[in-house]
Design a protein around this nucleic acid. Sequence first.
DNA 1: CTGTTAGCGCGTTCAG
DNA 2: CTGAACGCGCTAACAG
Lengths: 362, 362
Amino acid sequence: MAISSHNSENGMVRLEDIAAKVGVSRSEVSRVINGRVRAGKGVGAAMRQRILDAAQEMNYRPHRAAQSLARGRTDTVALMMVIYKQEEGNFHTAVMHHELSPHYHEIIGALTYTLHQYGINLLLAQCGGEDQDPQDVMEEIARSRTCDGMVITDMRVDDERPQILENAGLPYVVRGSSPKGGVVAVGIDNFQVGYQAIAYLHGLGHRNVLFFNIGQDLMSGQGRYRGMCAAREELGLHIEYQDDAHYKHGIYNAVKERLRLPDFPTAVFTEDELGALGAIHALEEAGRRIPQDVSVMTCLNARFMHQIAPHLTVLDLHQAEVAAEAGHLLAKMLRGDSVTPGQRFLAPQLDERGSTAPPPAS
Amino acid sequence: MAISSHNSENGMVRLEDIAAKVGVSRSEVSRVINGRVRAGKGVGAAMRQRILDAAQEMNYRPHRAAQSLARGRTDTVALMMVIYKQEEGNFHTAVMHHELSPHYHEIIGALTYTLHQYGINLLLAQCGGEDQDPQDVMEEIARSRTCDGMVITDMRVDDERPQILENAGLPYVVRGSSPKGGVVAVGIDNFQVGYQAIAYLHGLGHRNVLFFNIGQDLMSGQGRYRGMCAAREELGLHIEYQDDAHYKHGIYNAVKERLRLPDFPTAVFTEDELGALGAIHALEEAGRRIPQDVSVMTCLNARFMHQIAPHLTVLDLHQAEVAAEAGHLLAKMLRGDSVTPGQRFLAPQLDERGSTAPPPAS
DNA sequence: CTGTTAGCGCGTTCAG
DNA sequence: CTGAACGCGCTAACAG
């Protein structure tokens, strides 16, 4: 492979360089490369080909910052992530220091892949560090036009991020449920998660369920709570509800604690796989068999968890599909296609496996 | 909160706008904002404050593309990821469709966090999609100056990416072992992983070990293989070696298959947590107890796995620490600090838990 | 200390 | 179809 020579000293090759080599003007090269000159025939076509060849040979790539500035577009989308702060905890406490919540794993993978199909890069923005104000990070990215659009996730019931983005005029898609109407949002129907979990367990015969939820300050937690309540009222069963165990001292400890009291429920629902494994650990330590003595079910957030715990009955949250759809929607918006605002919901899918069964005959 | 008014119709506020408002020139505003004007005293200081106040009030943020173009710097670093293609497989096959390998989870979290401290954003570049040539993706990002530097990972023994980046003149850090000398690289010492695993099991009394490795086309797999060989020759024990089970049909199936033959080894080492869980599943199905009948040990890639399988004896690979160090090194290089080239190695750390024990008395 | 001027590399008029 | 000229928003070198 020949070393391409050009006049710019630092190794960068510009439109200018290839124009000089071929003997035309910059703008002609720009037009040819951007496809504004048809393949056609005659002398023009020959020049066109020479330009294209030279560009290829010199390994030309448009300078992204210059292109962005001129086009007013970055071809970049940002994902806003929440990083958990470090907290004290034991093994079954799912709060990690500066670690991403596992469901981001699915989101990042699916989003990167999807956006790439549109020629869009994914930028990772984080908030939740010690000194950084999430709103500040948002403002900074939005107003500096670091990206063309944004995906926000983990919405809180009082989340103000949509408003900030609208003020800044930056297109965005909410992954999950939006607390605010009239926005493009796509997520799992967490009402259905709460409802179906209870309905399924009720159908098996359970009348006493221990229900662990995400915090109700999150949209997802609120949805699950409401779904759970609706099912409870409709079907009439007893539910013990906890929504702070996750952060406070872990599901493992919460279950262990509950085991000290009499009348342990015949079924446990946890918010995620880690919680389920913690619950199972505590139950097995106490000599309870799964599912003969106690049924355990949970949500499937990360696909690879399925390999780790293939015996768990789960509600599949389709995290990857949701993220991919969010990516598609945002890409379309950026392309100029009209996307009707509103909340899209995917339904969770029950995947019945070995960790649930009818309650023991009393 | 007052709506800030400015003349740019689309809501963007430029240096120009704030200059007009205060009644000075663009460049003066630029200098003040970039701290090229001391706080000082007198009339200059008053103007300085007026400019700062106006910028704040108008919620000004420099346009990133413009700034990048002028400064010749993007304050962005790219992480090049390999996305596994979809393949057929059962539960215990750790090949997923368009899904990131779990260790990226640690890397992304640590890298995002670390780079943020230097005011650097992380861009996710993916390769390994159906149609995309990894080298092309690299060239594109490097030559278009989409980022100031790059972190590359999952190095293959014949990896040409370092050369591509050097040709393009883009600073980079290798996370892992570099096949090429004279580059800045930081990773776990996989020779030690292989060596210590065998040495530890040998120390417990095992003389017959089933060793699952990553492919030897990867630098990490090569290192582990060599470490294993060194320990084997030094200590003298029998090792059954497999390095394709992961991708071919999963550790679960490989172990199941091996169980059909006589003289099953007294210890199993797997390349990662998923593999270990698969192995354990197969062993328990066959009625073997862990660790009484068979010891199982593995590597700890993702911290949250520790919560899932706190009973596993592991070699902690410190993925987050390695990634963070890679981030620090790259940030320093970009800042202009001289960083001496060479391979940095962190040692894996043995974390002894319940899945290993002396072999059963024969 | 401040304003003027000249780029950064590319896209896009507007004449010829 | 092609070249010349201007602007994107910002930084930096040069005068005053």
